[in-house]
């Protein structure tokens, strides 16, 4: 399997990267770990004339906790995300997503920015990031802009990111007291798999123990990761228990559009949306209670 011919650029600063992307526009494609892009190029699904590596830009590799946010550079690797104490202690469901992604070899190369930028509906990092209500910082020669992750994905492989832009940073608000989140991915095997369904849930309990924020995100069952509005509506304003979660899980099954393919029937995927919604809500509740 051949790689199509392309010109390779290795800018050392964000500014340099902006210049290159502005110059080549939609003929260019940023690369970080390359675990998605190179595979797709070999399969001839993509053939950018210019590949712009972001891996030498030191400012994209940071991780900091600042002003109530966990800020993760786009080139922070998935392997490092699993190890990072700031992520594990503040946004644990994101750690779970990172641990579920690929194999150790893939995780050593793959980055958080790449997992979002490639916009695969089965990806492991979008559900927890959407559950936490993360924000993406996009940069270009025209400056930077913030975009809510819910607005980022457009369709499989396409995002809000313009050809002259790159993802610079992901900011996650540290959940307040009473909040918790859970992430579960289901494949045919425990590791190195393409998910059949993946779900993340986030709830926040107010002082009287009532859910005042609920986000349920469904992966693999639509062109992009989906919020589950019917499920969230059932959760809001209620006290959490198994029965409520069961109702939310049933509602989530109506919030998705699974297709039948060789990985599973739509029917099975829909059933699994229910199971994983229930189970991730239970994890979220446990964490919310501990986090009080």
């Amino acid at each position: 399997m051949l790689l199509p011919k392309f010109k390779f650029h290795e800018p050392k600063t964000e500014q340099e990267a902006c210049q290159i992307l502005t110059e080549y526009g939609d003929k260019a494609r940023p690369i970080a770990g390359g675990t998605d892009l190179v595979v797709n190029m070999k399969k001839k699904l993509m053939s950018p004339e210019h590949v712009v590596s972001l891996s030498r830009i030191a400012s994209l590799k940071g991780l900091q906790k600042e002003n109530g946010f966990v800020k993760i550079g786009a080139c922070f690797t998935v392997a490092d995300m699993i190890e990072a104490k700031d992520i594990r202690e503040n946004v644990n469901a994101l750690s779970a997503g990172a641990a579920a992604l690929g194999s150790p070899l893939v995780r050593n190369l793959a980055t958080i920015g790449g997992n979002l930028g490639s916009a695969r509906p089965a990806a492991d990092l979008p559900p927890p990031l959407m559950a936490y209500g993360a924000t993406l910082i996009l940069k270009s020669g025209k400056g930077k802009r913030n975009i809510a992750i819910d607005d980022f994905f457009k369709s499989p492989g396409t995002t809000e990111c313009r050809p002259d832009e790159f993802i610079a940073e992901i900011q996650v608000l540290t959940p307040p007291a009473g909040a918790g989140a859970g992430y579960i991915n289901l494949g045919a095997r425990k590791a190195q798999d393409c998910n059949i369904v993946n779900v993340a849930s986030f709830i926040c309990l107010n002082k009287s123990g009532v859910i005042d924020t609920a986000r349920v995100i469904l992966g693999c069952v639509g062109p992009v990761h989906l919020r589950a509005p019917a499920a969230e509506k059932i959760l809001m304003g209620e006290k959490p228990d198994k029965v409520l979660f069961r109702q939310a899980a049933d509602a989530a099954k109506t919030d998705c559009l699974p297709i039948t393919d060789f990985r599973g029937t739509g029917e099975y995927k829909r059933a699994m949306v229910g199971v994983l919604t229930q189970r991730t809500l239970e994890i979220a509740l446990d964490e919310a209670k501990k986090n009080n």
Binding site: R189, A191, Q192, F262
Partner: peptide
């Protein structure tokens, strides 16, 4: 053959 790679041909790994 649709599942012509190790991603989609489900060989068990140490997890199983």
């Amino acid at each position: 053959v649709v599942n012509d790679g190790f991603l989609d041909y489900k060989l068990p790994t140490f997890g199983e």
